[in-house]
Design a binder for these strands. Structure first.
Lengths: 243, 243
DNA sequence: CGCGAGCTTGATGCCGATCAATGCATGTGG
DNA sequence: CCACATGCATTGATCGGCATCAAGCTCGCG
């Protein structure tokens, strides 16, 4: 309900002074290089919880770097079933799916009130012709996304429910830890249903598995507040439950 | 068992005269641009059936374009379970997984005697600073790989066995058709077990599903020779079997 | 011709889906 | 401030699809 001017806040982004600098696109770049990036990443945008940043089919023009908040991306099949393909937190890029066809191929939804930095893709391509380190970093980010998805395919293709949830929690805490959060406690930003969609499980199965982990003394679960009591036990679940 | 000199045949690749030109890296590039690419893609390499092009952990130096033959890529979990993450045919790129960490993150195995064009990645990066169309195409290829994997996640996360196999067959025939093969007949290059690994199913389930499709008059199946009798029926399976 | 790898088919069991009810927080309007 | 609605989470009972285990079968190849 905000007028456009408010939703597309023309705030200076200033990668150079951003505390996410080493987690985001500018990772490893020199001050001069980041200055050039600053010129390009000029706008921020606020997304309220539940709103979409972009939708499948939208024309692709920008990449987005999560500045604050939390997102999910999901693809929707023709029959309406949807699959969460990822959760993105501060410093992570959104929109890479759009490059291939100039249209977005998934929806990006804010799971809490969030802000993103808007990166005009055409300008990013131009700049990366000039700043080779930017090109290098950008390629690495895309490659890592491919490798991440390989991991999800392994998870979906050959793990059982307990392993999937354990792997998911370990991945989340590891990424949160990089951002300064505790390794042993987290607040889930997503519902049981969204976790289930990501992990190829139904929400009831996710809930039951949480309860089982709690009964086994691995976790303490209070709705979306999770405390990891036995980190090692969680880790063992991922690579041991195989037969 | 060949001496290295034979396995790394120093043949000229000549994208400019390659019949895969419009399916591969040079897609849409001008003659001049392709000439520059030719200088870079100087070597071919032959891989016998069953041999690996690269393995997880190998240092990453090259991308590879499949020239002839057929590959699978797979990731292997610590406990030995493996997951096929893709099948690659003529014109498709292998090795994108290595860019992020300078080490390959999966194995690439030839499913039949194959040849690939060797693309030194460092030189590709350099050239794409200069040939903007190359950069553009390369980014599109990576982005499409991300989107493809989203599709696999949807498949693994929320489809039942029949849908998975139907979607798999439609995808294969579509890609083969682009390469001049029939839309209604194909010879599978991979075993039931490999199909199962890709689709998150056991080989027995794959086999049974083939048999069911045959009984329903959708396919004719003779081991690895598949004929699609009812293309529309196959298509309907993908988006209808939902409840 | 006989061996073996890969494929098919059958019988059985289990994990997770489904259906259904209850519990627990948050928020809203009287 | 309470009554009630709403959305999400938990828990139980039952069901079904795919995995598992176990034979046969097919076809290529030495």
């Amino acid at each position: 309900m905000h007028p456009p001017a408010l939703r597309l806040a023309p705030l200076k982004s200033a990668c150079s002074s951003c505390n996410l600098r080493e987690l985001c696109l500018p990772v490893g770049m020199s001050n001069e290089q980041v200055d050039k990036l600053d010129e390009l990443v000029s706008a921020r945008r606020s997304i309220e919880r539940g709103q979409t940043l972009f939708r499948s089919g939208d024309t692709f023009q920008h990449l987005y770097a999560v500045r604050t908040g939390f997102f999910k991306t999901c693809v929707i099949a023709d029959d309406g079933r949807d699959q969460v393909t990822g959760f993105q937190m501060a410093g992570e890029l959104l929109g890479l799916d759009g490059i291939g066809t100039d249209r977005h191929a998934c929806d990006a939804v804010a799971l809490e009130d969030s802000t993103v930095c808007v990166i005009p893709y055409g300008q990013l391509e131009e700049l990366s012709l000039e700043v080779t380190d930017l090109q290098r970093v950008f390629h690495k980010i895309m490659s890592r996304e491919i490798v991440r998805e390989h991991g999800v395919m392994l998870l979906l293709g050959s793990m059982r429910a307990e392993e999937r949830l354990a792997a998911f929690l370990l991945n989340l805490t590891q990424r949160l830890h990089l951002r300064g959060y505790s390794r042993s406690a987290l607040v889930l930003r997503m519902s049981r249903e969204e976790i289930g969609s990501y992990l190829g499980l139904k929400l009831e199965t996710v809930s039951r598995t949480f309860s089982r982990f709690q009964a086994e003394g691995i976790l303490e679960v209070k709705q979306r507040d999770i405390r990891i009591v036995d980190h090692e036990g969680l880790r063992k679940l991922v690579n041991t439950t195989a037969c």
